[in-house]
Design a protein around this nucleic acid. Sequence first.
DNA 1: TCTCATATAACTTTATATGTTACATGATGG
DNA 2: CCATCATGTAACATATAAAGTTATATGAGA
Lengths: 152, 152
Amino acid sequence: MRRDSKLSGVLHVLLHMAQQPGPFTSETLAKAMDTNPVVIRRIMAGLREIGYVRSEKGHGGGWTLACDLSKVTLRDVYDALGSPSLLAMGNRTEAPGCLVEQAVNAALDEAFHDAEALLLSRLGEVTLEMLSDDFRKRLGSRKPQGMSAHRV
Amino acid sequence: MRRDSKLSGVLHVLLHMAQQPGPFTSETLAKAMDTNPVVIRRIMAGLREIGYVRSEKGHGGGWTLACDLSKVTLRDVYDALGSPSLLAMGNRTEAPGCLVEQAVNAALDEAFHDAEALLLSRLGEVTLEMLSDDFRKRLGSRKPQGMSAHRV
DNA sequence: TCTCATATAACTTTATATGTTACATGATGG
DNA sequence: CCATCATGTAACATATAAAGTTATATGAGA
């Protein structure tokens, strides 16, 4: 199954933005992400509605961070994307008349629910700031002489 | 994203088979599952290789359970299906040169891994026999006067 | 008013789960 | 033996959704 990588993508964008003051055009971000500007606008739209980023049109426009990185968790970002389903597996039918299937669904649902809850909880423990710090640490150990530039 | 329902489907088949002695033809099972016989053969192939079911050709042939239901867990069945990926989300790129993406991946991977581990652990706690017992309990409370037939 | 940049709808591409058809193989019963 | 039944499997078709692309509208500077 093709795996949704919007969360991974959005975090990538946000972290890039956190390394230097904005604004960043969709085209710039798209190049860094090796994708299309429209894709960037699409995944950023949810974040804008919630106020994590702002967008400006025209000359000197683009995307700007508008949140406290230490207060936004990966869970928050996930929710801003519309809380897409986390699991690649599901029940064959959700409200089956077949009692066998009901028994199967009940068992699977419990396991699925627990796993989802744990994942959301873990995402809620990590802030964007923690990610940014981790990035800078990686940058430091790779290029001890400076940290103004980094490969995309 | 479309969710994989092979596990749900296989369990459904196995539980149906557990309610009465076999063998069952792919066509019979397909009707009960509202799908195609070839689909049944496809999802049963993995189980046969591991020895959870047997298949016989020709007259009187079909699929037969060949395992101790109390010893086979949902995790075992999942593995027999080839251990398909459990999560609907993944990293944009797995081995990125970008340090930002490495930081993102590291954080997500940890959360993803923990959730997968929990899910597998939960699946490992449930045996086919437990599911079968649960089914019979549901059947009993719905049709107290007998338990030879059930809706599909 | 020209250029830049976002906003968004519509469309295309790609991946993959699922469904279907066709034919081969082997087992059983007459 | 040979007709029938059933699995085994490859090949093809369909459905759905993620991701990419194109086109056009809108608004903000210079």
